[in-house]
């Protein structure tokens, strides 16, 4: 998708920008998933797909959960499930909950400001 001068085409640039945007909010999305209840890895993946439009591979999410746990934001426990095998459930630690609140507030503030800035663009661009 690069042009002959080596620059990215507008479509590639847009795709790259969208990927970067999604990457930036992945940690917040996971903390948000786990806010109401504990979940295991596959449930987190499905929740991200259905509620945030973030379609991720398991190979991305499991190491990320491991990192968040190592940073003390999550804790985990093995629970015997009806499925016939145990599942590793993750839940937020108090530190994870306060990080989630901080990040969510920042996100909301940023999003509100951007909405104000972009409303004329959306108004005129939507015509």
């Amino acid at each position: 998708m690069a042009t002959s001068s080596g620059e990215l085409s507008p479509e590639s640039h847009f795709d790259k920008w969208e990927i970067q945007l999604r990457k930036g909010c992945l940690e917040l999305a996971i903390l948000g998933c786990l806010w109401p209840a504990r979940l295991y890895g596959l449930e987190i993946l499905r929740r991200l797909e259905s509620d945030s439009d973030l379609v991720l591979s398991a190979g991305t999410v499991y190491p990320l959960l491991s990192r968040l746990k190592a940073e003390g934001l999550l804790k985990s426990e093995w629970v015997e499930a009806d499925a016939g095998h145990p599942r590793k459930y993750y839940q937020l630690t108090p530190r994870g909950r306060s990080r989630a609140v901080e990040m969510a507030k920042m996100w909301a503030r940023f999003s509100t400001n951007m909405k104000g800035l972009l409303s004329p663009v959306l108004k005129e661009g939507g015509k």
């Binding site: 890895g41 596959l42 398991a58 499991y62 499925a83 095998h85 145990p86 599942r87 590793k88």
Partner: peptide, 9 residues
Amino acid sequence: RELRSHVDD
């Protein structure tokens, strides 16, 4: 163990 559980599910 966790990845086995994921694949099983």
